[in-house]
């Protein structure tokens, strides 16, 4: 194993950053890296979500399990989640998961006093901790002649256990496409043929420059690898007119967050979690179990 190094130095370039949306480029690495990052973002970045609901009174039309399920799905602001403890390995409360280090308590009291339908939303949910509050767009449901009195306990968890703990609404990446238009060959085409090439793509990838009447790549990333243009070009009897490759070492990531953590934080947390996981592998070196558990990967880690 000596000598071979798997170390890479990926580069990240941020394109767009909003609270719940991030778009960035990840370059000079390969699919395994990009996919690991994606998987961690979906399944392993911890957040806080309601996990235990005690229902005192529920006279609404929705049944207890339904309400509890919906309460669980409310995203809660979870900046604290990384530093919180999992209730299963919390020493302060013997694992019953009701202490301040591992849980946050919520109360929901709603009563409908007139004969109209009352909307019960996440705004009716009162938190015992001001840092963990519902993200303000969600809604639990509505009930007629509603009388609800509930205590809910939110705990830290990861998306692998239940989707409610997943901080990511959408995490996806694509290979960056590389599009070459053969200018010389294109010149031989009439304007009509050019338009047909441009229009053969379902997404707006190509355009015709109104001045030079040349086919240009308008939006490279709008390309969805649908091969429609290539098929069209083939059908026109001009293979090689347009050539498209996927750059196998650069990825464009799109991250949308549920609001539990900021999209940027989500990426950073994911890297943090990934690091921790790799550390766990590294630290367990030299043990026989580690080899059993990690097999070749463990050997790689030791070597590289």
């Amino acid at each position: 194993m000596e000598g071979a190094s798997y170390q890479r130095f990926p580069k990240v370039k941020i394109r767009e950053l909003k609270d719940d949306y991030a778009k960035f480029e990840l370059r000079e690495t390969d699919a395994s890296m990009a996919n690991a990052l994606r998987r961690v973002m979906i399944a392993e970045v911890p957040t806080i979500a309601i996990d235990l609901v005690e229902i005192e009174v529920n006279s609404s039309v929705l049944n207890d399990e339904f309400i509890a399920h919906r309460l669980g799905l409310i995203p809660l602001t979870s900046e604290r989640a990384m530093s919180m403890r999992f209730s299963r390995d919390c020493d302060a409360c013997d694992g019953d998961g009701q202490c301040e280090f591992c849980s946050v308590e919520f109360h929901l009291r709603a009563k409908c006093i007139n004969d109209q339908t009352l909307d019960v939303t996440s705004k009716d949910l009162y938190s015992s901790d001001h840092t963990v509050v519902p993200v303000d767009f969600s809604d639990t449901g509505a009930g007629f002649e509603n009388n609800e009195d509930q205590r809910a306990i939110a705990r830290k968890g990861i998306g692998k256990d239940h989707a409610k703990w997943s901080p990511a609404a959408t995490v996806t990446f694509m290979y960056e496409p590389e599009i070459h238009v053969n200018e010389e060959m294109m010149e031989t085409l009439s304007l009509e043929e050019k338009t047909s090439v441009v229009e053969s793509s379902p997404t707006k990838v190509f355009g015709i420059n109104p001045h030079t009447q040349q086919v240009e790549v308008v939006d490279r990333e709008a390309y969805t690898y649908d091969d429609e243009v290539l098929k069209k070009v083939e059908a026109m009897g001009k293979p090689g007119l347009v050539e498209i490759y996927a750059k196998e070492d650069s990825f464009i990531f799109t991250v949308e967050s549920t609001g539990a953590v900021k999209a940027s934080q989500l990426v950073l947390n994911a890297i943090e979690v990934l690091k921790q996981k790799l550390d766990a592998v590294r630290l367990s070196e030299d043990t026989v179990e580690a080899d059993d558990q990690f097999g070749e990967l463990g050997a790689h880690m030791r070597g590289g």
């Binding site: 998987r39 979906i42 399944a43 989707a163 694509m174």
Partner: peptide
């Protein structure tokens, strides 16, 4: 698991 499922861009 969702992360093992195929996804589109």
């Amino acid at each position: 698991q969702q992360e093992d499922f195929p996804f589109s861009e």
